[in-house]
Design a protein around this nucleic acid. Structure first.
Lengths: 338, 338
DNA sequence: TTGTAAGCGTTATCAA
DNA sequence: TTGATAACGCTTACAA
């Protein structure tokens, strides 16, 4: 009669404890309205049998899964090694530390229809979702909105912003203060290496760069497209040097790209900051370890994502959450590259 | 009567399609033994209602969840930005691409009892688990073994190896060929920067280094402990230079540590490879972008994890999988640092 | 090929 | 405080 291959059920716990299934259930879930004796008996039975509640059965009736998703675009090298994603994971993880919620990481593979992810999200596997660093063509936004699943975006979405809850750093302002720093340092030929233009962070930081230059009456034609990664930054720097050999400063929209730019500048015999000043963006570990250390803009990813998670938990709990962006202020971090 | 707030159920689909619930179920799950007409009617109903099966209900009866876990030690900066984890994710993701299985990333937080993770794994949320880069004190090994959940380890576990399925690269051999390369290049004072000694990869690579040096009759006393990360590698290099100023080569047990070492060497005015030759380990993107590019050892993480995932899927399917390690051969990659 | 009916393991309602 | 009992939404023999 001993079949240890099957996991123990609530019924067996109840039987072992000598109480009814309902009492056992109550004892296990907080122990409200259950006598000390019954509680003790159930606790003992649980320990003895090594009982673990079956989540499927539980969530079938409670309609909760006690896990939330972090949706990330594609599982490629660039995304996965970007400190932004690392920060996002740490933020979620930190926000979930107190609770007994689990984090589920979902990759929205670019080669598959977005509705695969949406189907997964809708099928009741998670109570809510945090969507990070999505691209324009994703249109996860409408799909999620339509699904009515509690969701919070990290980074301003392209569309439907009126109905979506999101957190973000003020990327325009970030680009502006980064560039202003270069202007203040007396630089006059200031280039930029942009982020992907299908992400709002890429677009906004470029806008900030432009604003600062216009305000200073400087030219805004030295632009090279990057992809937030090191190699892309290096390639962009090569192009900039070829097309604008007179440049005396560069604002790179990510520290990784700035790192690539530094290498290229060094290889071309341009000293930093002597010949060319460089400002990056993110300050997520990379900036401090380049040489020279980068002057950069603080991107408070961990705090942002922590906030996003807290918001999501509120939504999941059914609380009313005002639908307005939570915008974090960027802050200039001084390094030795300006 | 229209309550769009509740998700449509199989019953509604069946009703709309004019068939029984079982026929609807069959049509949705592969369509075996269902007439073309019924199939068409069900398909239409599904589309019209936007039906998604409730996973909890389904897995309650099938006892499958169609998702597998990737268990990673702690969500700290070091782990998250390590290309190893990125490679692992890509490997799992690639292996899962054909299937409709989902990847669930789980962090085994170090400050919490390991049985939290085990409880989660046991509670029926996933069909199996891949455990990557675990530490000695984790004792996830016994816990998982006891839980009878299908599991495959990436990286040789410390204990119970007889009963565990795992994949790994031959780290001893990797450390050996890396060091042999330095010996062959005529280096005689060869130091090493080790990985964490609570991980088998760290221990084994050090063993390989020692083997090569002993075989060559060289001293094995220039050892500095690192942590696989850049900063740790840099600190270790500083110590090595202080204690063994005569060293002419370094084997770093990871490319990230090698990168840190390169910086320190440069800062101390030691040329690479002129004064000091350097060999790293991993070749997961970092090696190619340092200057000089690193000579390193290929760590086939993506393939390894892909294999691990395939094994796991076999286990989950109930196939008999021989319990023996799958060991991948390391390969020396030539850079310009030797 | 189709439908009936019996669960899967929980939680929640309600009377005792 | 406790214990029957009825869901929750689905799959799957089994019978038709």
């Amino acid at each position: 009669m001993s079949t240890p291959s099957t996991a123990p059920t609530l019924d067996e716990v109840a039987q072992t404890a000598g109480v009814s299934r309902s009492t056992a259930s109550r004892a296990i879930n907080g122990g409200l309205r259950v006598s000390p004796e019954a509680q003790a008996a159930v606790d003992a039975a649980v320990a003895q049998l090594g009982y673990t509640p079956n989540r499927a059965a539980r969530s079938l009736v409670t309609r909760r899964t006690d896990s939330i998703a972090l949706v990330v675009p594609e599982p490629d090298e660039r995304i996965l090694t970007d400190p932004f994603l690392a920060g996002a994971m740490r933020g979620v993880s930190a926000a979930l530390a107190g609770t007994d919620l689990q984090l589920v990481l979902l990759f929205a593979r670019p080669d598959e229809p977005v509705n695969r992810i949406v189907r997964y999200l809708r099928s009741g596997h998670v109570d809510g979702a945090i969507v990070a660093s999505h691209h324009r063509e994703d249109d996860l936004e409408e799909a999620l909105l339509a699904s009515r699943l509690p969701a919070v975006f990290v980074g301003r979405p392209f569309a439907s912003t009126a109905d979506l809850v999101y957190v973000d750093v003020d990327n325009v302002e970030g680009g502006r203060i980064a560039t202003q720093r270069l202007v203040d340092a007396g630089r006059r030929r200031i280039a930029t290496i942009t982020g992907p233009q299908d992400m709002t962070a890429g677009v906004d930081r470029l806008t900030g760069w432009r604003q600062a230059l216009r305000a200073a009456g400087l030219a805004t034609d030295a632009v090279a497209a990057g992809d937030f990664a090191v190699a892309g930054g290096a390639a962009a720097m090569e192009r900039l040097l070829a097309e604008h050999p007179d440049l005396d400063a560069v604002f790179a929209a990510s520290d990784l790209m700035a790192e690539g730019a530094l290498r290229v500048l060094t290889a071309h015999g341009r000293s930093v900051p002597g010949d060319v000043a460089v400002v990056g963006f993110d300050n997520l570990g990379v900036a401090a370890s380049t040489s020279p250390a980068l002057t950069t803009v603080q991107n408070p990813v961990v705090e942002m994502v922590k906030t996003a998670t807290d918001l999501l938990l509120d939504l999941v709990a059914g609380h009313v959450v005002p639908v307005r962006p939570r915008i974090f202020a960027p802050r200039l971090i001084d390094g030795a590259s300006v």
